[in-house]
Structure formats: C-alpha cells, structure tokens
C-alpha cells in the first residue's frame, strides 16, 4: 500500500515538474530572424585578412598554414619573382575537407588567415565549397583582428620542392609545440596571460 501511495505521489511530482515549464518562456531562438551572437573566438569559416589601410592581403606566402593543416584543405599557388621571393597567385581552401581545427590560424605569423565567426555558407553545389583568393578576401574584409605580436617562429623555412601541390600534413610541426608567447591568433593580446 505504501508503494502505491509513493508511486502515485511520484507520478504527480513528475507531472508538476514538466508542467512548471509551461509557464516559462521558451529558450529557443527563431532563426533566421533572431541569431545567436557568436563568441569572438568562435571557429567558423576560413578567411584571408587584408591590411586595413592598404587593402592588400597580409599573406606573405610562407606556406606554414598549408603545412599545418591536418586535412590538406589549403592549396597555395605562387610564382617566384627575380629575387626568389614568392608571390601569391591563388589561395584555395576546400571547405568540404576543412575540419575547422584552427591550426592554420595558429601557424600564421602575419595575421593573414583566420577562422572568422561566420557560418552561413552552405551551397547546393559541392564545387562551390572550394573558395579561392577573391572570395576568401571578400568574406574576410569585415572580420576584426589584431595584428599578431609574436616572435619570429623557429620553424625551418620550407624548401622550394614543396611546390603548389598540397604537401599533405607533414613537414613543419603544428603550432601547438610553439613557444608560449604565441598563445592566440589575434583574439586577445599576448601579454594578458603572462602575469
């Protein structure tokens, strides 16, 4: 008999626990009229950043992001001028392969590539997921960033044999094994964490 009473009591308690939610306002957002404000560190789509004054891309074709990517989603095509310096011809990111890990952003010493907090880029055509330099630059124009203040990286220069094909995820090490001044990719100033 006691079990029966306790069973009924608990059934009623359960009812009231769900019932009290009826009086509460819903916590969901009506997308797309309402959007959740993304945190500034949120890792969305890959974009290329440009200098605010001159409008030129910050990229110096050091190829570190290409080597850091674990999925080989970045392809960089470049020419060499008379002095042997690399000039960017095309920067191709395949968003279908990109795993949004952010290692490219951490590898870059020049604030040239960033994972912007934008995410609404779905398409109906899989080929449209491969973005080239112009699209990457355009989407990255209004992404706020801070110029990285970091020491020069101790990574060895990539050899000329690492040409335009994706070298795959080998060669240079990832940025995690880096000196600890390189702690973030343009979000907070590097000095804040070292008290």
């Amino acid at each position: 008999m006691k079990k029966l009473v306790s069973a009924i009591k608990n059934l009623v308690i359960g009812l009231f626990t769900t019932g009290k939610h009826l009086g509460r306002h819903a916590i969901t957002l009506q997308y797309p009229t309402q959007r959740w404000p993304m945190p500034e560190r949120s890792r969305g789509i890959v974009v290329l950043l440009s200098d605010r004054e001159t409008g030129a891309l910050n990229c110096t074709v050091c190829l570190l992001c290409m080597k850091a990517c674990p999925s080989a989603a970045i392809r960089i095509e470049y020419d060499k001028d008379e002095k042997g310096k690399r000039i960017l011809k095309d920067f191709i990111v395949d968003d279908g392969i990109c795993c949004f890990c952010g290692l490219c952003e951490e590898a870059c010493n020049f604030s040239a590539i960033k994972m912007a907090p934008k995410y609404e880029f779905s398409t109906l055509n899989r080929n449209d997921l491969t973005w080239h330099k112009d699209r990457l630059k355009e989407v990255g124009l209004d992404v706020p960033y801070e110029k990285v203040a970091r020491k020069k990286s101790v990574v060895a220069k990539p050899s000329a044999a690492a040409a335009t094909r994706p070298s795959g995820p080998d060669s240079a090490s990832g940025p995690a094994a880096a000196p600890d001044s390189k702690v973030d990719g343009g979000g907070e100033p590097a000095g804040e964490e070292q008290k």
């Binding site: 009826l22 916590i27 969901t28």
Partner: peptide, 10 residues
C-alpha cells in the same frame, strides 16, 4: 504547441 512549451521551445 503544448509539447513544445513543456520542452521550453516554440
């Protein structure tokens, strides 16, 4: 609607 509001959605 009832199920949605019990689950705190719309």
């Amino acid at each position: 609607k009832v199920s949605a509001h019990i689950q705190q959605r719309f």
